[in-house]
Deep mutational scan, measured.
Amino acid sequence: MGFKLLSKLLVYLTASIMAIASPLAFSVDSSGEYPTVSEIPVGEVRLYQIADGVWSHIATQSFDGAVYPSNGLIVRDGDELLLIDTAWGAKNTAALLAEIEKQIGLPVTRAVSTHFHDDRVGGVDVLRAAGVATYASPSTRRLAEVEGNEIPTHSLEGLSSSGDAVRFGPVELFYPGAAHSTDNLIVYVPSASVLYGGCAIYELSRTSAGNVADADLAEWPTSIERIQQHYPEAQFVIPGHGLPGGLDLLKHTTNVVKAHTNRSVVE
């Protein structure tokens, strides 16, 4: 069995187990497998329904001669939608809004960016022009300005110390501490036991640490421990890039980060 097929099978099995364990909360999309990078042309966006009122959005972007996937989250909030992270750029984010209108038909009224990198804030200006209120932590807003990236308009308070959590509509926002970046936030959907790890969490097929220019490698494993301790009931975990899975993604990420750190020390 090929690795790609095995990865998709694991996603399907995880979703099936969740649907059985929580039949009222989960209505997993039966329309197909989780979209992969090879299936999404740059400039297009796919939506994948995880649970009743919960979707991931998947886009792709060219970077350094390669094409990478990027995940975000959409959560229903009454007759409105909360968006977590842009679709990595203005063109993708405009396509995301169009796809949401086509498939869901509810307005996106608020959006949260989970850290300051372009795959999370690139497209904020498109959201703002569409009347979406954009939010991020003060740290993310400051770092985005320093980096020359787009800056969300509103500040999220109460997320300055490791372990801080605040309720934001249908989700809980959690600051686990520094990891992929010093400002990275985690998003949890309690009604569906869905954990969105953003770039602080890796997919299972990833074996290298990737972009760690703004990471705190020493603190990252401790931050992941905080996530595990705060959300032990999480059933569906979405990484910032690639295929979702279960809580095993947290341990896998820790292993990859520690291996990278150990290699760096040896070198």
Rank of each mutant, 00 (worst) to 15 (best):
V54P: 01
H154I: 10
S38G: 10
V37E: 07
E147Y: 10
Y175P: 00
L73V: 05
K4M: 03
E267D: 09
E101L: 12
N92R: 10
R128Y: 05
E267Q: 12
V67C: 13
D248C: 07
D248L: 05
K8W: 05
L185K: 01
S31W: 07
T140H: 01
I74P: 00
Y34H: 14
D29G: 06
A178K: 09
G246D: 10
A259C: 08
R263E: 11
A19I: 12
A218V: 05
T182L: 06
H154Q: 14
L185D: 00
T261L: 14
L10P: 06
Q103T: 12
H57M: 02
L10N: 09
S113E: 10
P69Y: 14
G163Q: 05
E233N: 05
E157W: 13
K4Q: 14
T153Q: 13
N211T: 07
L106D: 06
E157T: 08
Y34K: 13
Y196C: 02
S162I: 05
D183E: 10
E33C: 07
N149S: 12
D164Q: 09
S31P: 12
K91H: 15
Q229I: 04
Y196D: 03
R128D: 09
V132F: 02
L83D: 14
Q229E: 08
S16C: 05
G163P: 04
S162M: 14
S193H: 11
Y202D: 05
T14G: 12
G2W: 09
E219M: 14
I58L: 09
P221H: 05
A94W: 11
K102E: 10
T253Q: 02
D118V: 05
L106V: 09
Y48C: 08
D118G: 05
D77N: 02
R142S: 13
L247P: 08
I201M: 14
A218F: 12
D118E: 06
D248F: 14
G89S: 10
Q228V: 07
G177K: 00
V121F: 01
G78V: 08
S205Q: 09
S56P: 06
F168H: 06
L13Y: 02
N92E: 10
S70V: 09
S264R: 13
I58V: 07
Q103C: 09
S30T: 15
Y48K: 06
V42S: 07
R167W: 04
G105W: 14
H57S: 13
S30F: 13
A209G: 10
L6S: 12
G148K: 08
R263T: 12
K251I: 04
P176H: 00
D164T: 10
L82T: 06
W55A: 06
S137A: 07
K91Q: 13
N255S: 09
Y188S: 04
Y12A: 14
A178V: 09
S181I: 00
D52Y: 03
R142N: 15
P176V: 03
T140L: 14
P138I: 15
F168W: 06
A136F: 03
T36V: 11
R76G: 07
A66W: 14
P138M: 14
G65Y: 07
P138D: 06
G78S: 09
H57I: 15
S208M: 05
T36M: 09
R141M: 14
D85E: 08
R128I: 09
I50K: 10
Y68M: 03
V28H: 15
G105D: 07
L83V: 09
R76L: 12
S31K: 14
F3K: 10
E150D: 14
V187F: 00
